[in-house]
Design a protein around this nucleic acid. Structure first.
Lengths: 334, 334
DNA sequence: TTGTATGCGTTATCAT
DNA sequence: ATGATAACGCATACAA
């Protein structure tokens, strides 16, 4: 206990939480004592008593997927500005882990959770008993149940595909439609791709739509190899569901002796830093990650602070198309 | 309190902590009640009372630097197997944030901390009052003060440089010596580079050693541009302090019309996934990240569980040289 | 084997 | 403006 040397007793608490009505004299003494004794409030006790922890959770599928690590960095930065600490968790897209996160089994002490779902759908969130505020990222699987922040995936995919059409490509493939029908993101991006083709009067060929198991470089590599084996010859452009998939696809194209973008133009999705330096640099859809991070943290904060139930909010954040060498310019090497 | 419907009172605690002497009958009833009421032990209360939290901290400079995100992924996986949750923090290499982490100001409730230092040196750790166990990663700045896990950076850098010599290169540059003299890693890797050159009877030319501000792609790009402007013409090989630096350097070489590896061979350090798919794929030093993660977590666990003070431990983990296209094979495109 | 009382360090409530 | 007291929910020691 901090009935510290100086004098005061639990006025310490007031000082620490800078309660307004404390005389400068007392405050100074307490502060001095804190410094001297290297006193540090006990987080567990404080949290137990007050019910607040100043910690928010961030649950993502994989920490080493660049999109999520870049997002995590931003969420931590934004939270820090708001005086919050972030507890980052990794679900690996595993259903049990996601349930544990959402139901607080492994999260009881966070004041709110920013969560990027993979395995869970609306039904799972409906039965939720935990009262912790949640903000969903990416998948909009649970319409109207909890807050959501993300871009318009259909519009973004359409924009990317339209760009490929504008540069004169006609045989445009899509990689990353996802085998499991559970992925809403995959469906939305596929839809945007289809819309762009149809609007341009181009035929949607199912053999040019390649599903993947995941969204890693390897998935892109394997999918592109498969595509190149199919009858009809290679496409003249490919839109990939993520930048990582695009990098893998490019690798497969080069292995096959095809040039990017001369023979095949490639566009990705996410705008990870890698694409600004790779060979060729990667054309991509750039979601406003900072806006996503800020909106998500602020939403959580609003809910945590409000006593009344706030209406469910769905914020649609911005994106831009970033054109780089993989669809347009000359490559660095030529 | 959970004097739950069923019958028992605070035997609940016994059941939850699976205290051995509980009759099956009672245990079953308690378990049922827990399920029924969706009871969840309060983390704060438990932690306050027991002094343990089952949470460890991981503090890295930047979450979106691939080496750290890959390491974070592994640490989380290993910790999960040991029944621990990981609280990941980001210091941004900022001295104040690192001090806060090390002194528990923003960490009081973790049982141990795995910490990758950037701004702090031995002196800072010496004055530490916090009793939380720490395992240092990478920098060995505080010899003998706290546990440390990491590879032999000198030997690894020497191995990489020797490889460049073996494939016939003679004018070998090093990028990433770091401006600030504080970086021990930079010094060690530079030392290994020098050793290899000297052993081979090659001259160490200071104009071939380029310092960088950080270890990002951009730093590599800028450093290589600077190197290419210097008198004496381009080197025939470059060893880079990290893979990201190497990717930036390769980009600068291609911009300059030079081929990798034909004109300039490039080797990196870290073995991040990107290097397995980039064009060209990247030769690199591959530290055993899983071993690092496992050793670090286990060390923490050992200290947290032991009542007595354990002797300070410094574990040297393994590494391998992975040869890829950037120094050897044919590139995918040719 | 199970129940009872006490206290972990803090904040909230209420007096003063 | 400050001080005393209770309570947060659990685990521990001990009694039953």
């Amino acid at each position: 206990m901090a009935a510290r040397a100086g004098v005061a007793r639990k006025t310490v608490s007031n000082v620490i939480n800078n309660y307004p009505h404390v005389s400068d004299d007392v405050r100074a003494r307490v502060l001095a004592a804190i410094e001297e004794l290297d006193y540090r409030p006990n987080h567990a006790a404080r949290s137990l008593r007050s019910g607040r922890s100043r910690i928010i959770g961030l649950a993502v599928p994989e920490l080493d997927v660049a999109y999520f690590s870049e997002l995590a960095r931003l969420v931590v930065e934004v939270a820090q500005k708001r005086g919050l600490t972030v507890m980052i968790m990794q679900t690996l897209g595993d259903r049990d882990r996601e349930l544990a996160v959402v139901n607080g089994t492994s999260t009881q002490f966070v004041e709110g959770l920013i969560y990027s779902p993979v395995a869970l759908g609306g039904a799972d969130l409906e039965g939720r008993r935990d009262r912790t505020p949640i903000v969903l990222l990416g998948e909009r699987s649970s319409q109207g149940l909890v807050d959501h922040v993300g871009i318009d995936n259909v519009a973004a995919a359409r924009t990317a595909t339209e760009h490929l059409i504008e540069i004169g490509r006609r045989r445009i493939a899509f990689i990353g439609s996802q085998r499991a029908a559970t992925s809403e993101i995959a469906q939305l991006r596929t839809a945007g791709y289809r819309q762009a083709l149809e609007s341009a009067g181009l035929k949607v060929e199912s053999r040019l739509i390649i599903p993947t198991a995941g969204y890693h470089r390897k998935d892109g590599l394997l999918a592109m190899r498969k595509l190149l084996k199919r009858a009809g010859g290679p496409p003249d452009a490919v839109f990939c569901a993520t930048d990582l998939v695009a990098q893998g696809a490019i690798r497969a194209l080069l292995e096959h002796g095809l040039r990017v973008p001369e023979d095949v133009a490639v566009a990705g999705f996410d705008d990870i830093d890698e694409g600004r330096y790779s060979t060729p640099t990667l054309t991509t859809i750039s979601p406003d990650k900072r806006q996503i991070a800020e909106t998500a943290v602020d939403r959580l904060l609003a809910r945590a602070q409000s006593k009344t139930d706030l209406p469910v909010n769905d914020t649609v954040t911005g994106f831009t198309l970033v054109v780089r060498e993989s669809t347009a310019g000359r490559t660095a090497s030529g």
